[in-house]
Amino acid sequence: MRMQTLRPHGLECVTWNVHRGRGQDNRVDPERIVDVLASEVCAHGPEVLALQEADEETPPHAGLLDLKRIEAETGLRSIHSNAALRWGPQSDGFLGAILFLHPDFEITATHVLDLPGHCHRGAVVVDTRKNGKALRILTTHLSLGQMLRAAQMRTIGQFLFRRPEMPTIVLGDLNEWRPWGGLAFSKKLVGLRLSGPVRRTFPATRPLLPLDRILSDQPAAVREARVLDGPGIRVASDHRPLAAQVLLA
């Protein structure tokens, strides 16, 4: 097991759309995803890991990955042991979204959100405490269409408006190709002023579009954002992972 050490002034976060294990060679190989997570994606010891498209696309949205091995290799823990945080009894996450956290996080509340759209989309929300400070972590996979993304982020914003206010990290495949983020990330729509560096993550072979994001509602909190690379990363999925250090208020 890779033992993690919580960084005193920030969190190392990673998000990766694993494309349901289908690689650039068109081969579906979930075991390869776990190999690449262990050897390349999590080699630098992240404390937050968000995966998208990590369950089957259609009901019953069965799990694809060996979560026990991911936990053993990374030292992180899936937050989905509670059945209420999974789509169904055969799922590992909620509509393909799986969140792993360092075991030293104190989890104070968890939620899953159904998001509007003709294709199933969802969000996973976790309220935590770290070093006595409250922190909310939200991961999601938004739709390709701009209007649906706006509707989904509005749904997320309305949910957060009813929750206790705390610093918030949003990470995942947000499917927004425009560097400025468009309507979906605007404060008027979401209620939060989300920001973070823009890095190109798609397609994996030659990234052109910044579809994956790590954002915070704390000004200039997302630092050292970088697209991860490696021989396994380039073939295992159609996205490259995005990593960033997020400073804590």
Rank of each mutant, 00 (worst) to 15 (best):
S39L: 04
E47F: 13
Q52G: 06
V41L: 12
H44C: 02
G45Y: 06
Q52A: 14
L49F: 05
V36P: 01
P46H: 03
D25E: 11
S39H: 13
G23I: 01
N26I: 09
R27Y: 05
A54I: 10
A43S: 03
E31Y: 15
L37K: 00
P30R: 09
E47V: 11
V48M: 01
E40C: 14
A54P: 09
Q24F: 10
P46F: 10
E53M: 12
A38F: 03
D35V: 04
Q24V: 13
C42D: 07
V41E: 01
V48K: 01
V41M: 11
R27T: 04
R27Q: 11
G45I: 02
G23Q: 07
R27S: 13
E40P: 11
V36W: 12
C42G: 15
Q24D: 10
S39I: 14
D29F: 01
Q24Y: 00
P30M: 00
P30C: 02
R32Y: 12
D25P: 14
G23R: 11
G23Y: 12
D35R: 12
E47W: 06
S39A: 03
N26F: 15
Q24E: 09
L37F: 11
D29S: 06
L51D: 04
L37H: 00
E31L: 06
V41T: 13
E47D: 04
R32F: 15
I33T: 06
Q24G: 15
A38G: 13
V28A: 06
I33W: 08
D35W: 09
V28T: 13
L49D: 00
E47K: 02
S39M: 14
A43H: 02
A50H: 08
G45M: 10
V28D: 02
R27K: 15
Q52H: 08
G23T: 13
V34P: 07
E31V: 13
Q24M: 11
L37P: 00
N26C: 15
P30D: 08
R32P: 07
Q24C: 14
C42P: 08
S39V: 07
A38C: 12
A38V: 06
R27N: 15
D25K: 14
E31P: 01
L37Q: 04
A38L: 07
H44N: 15
S39N: 07
V34L: 05
V34H: 10
N26P: 08
V41Y: 09
V48C: 07
A38R: 05
D29Y: 05
R27C: 15
D25C: 09
R27E: 08
V34A: 05
A54V: 05
E53S: 07
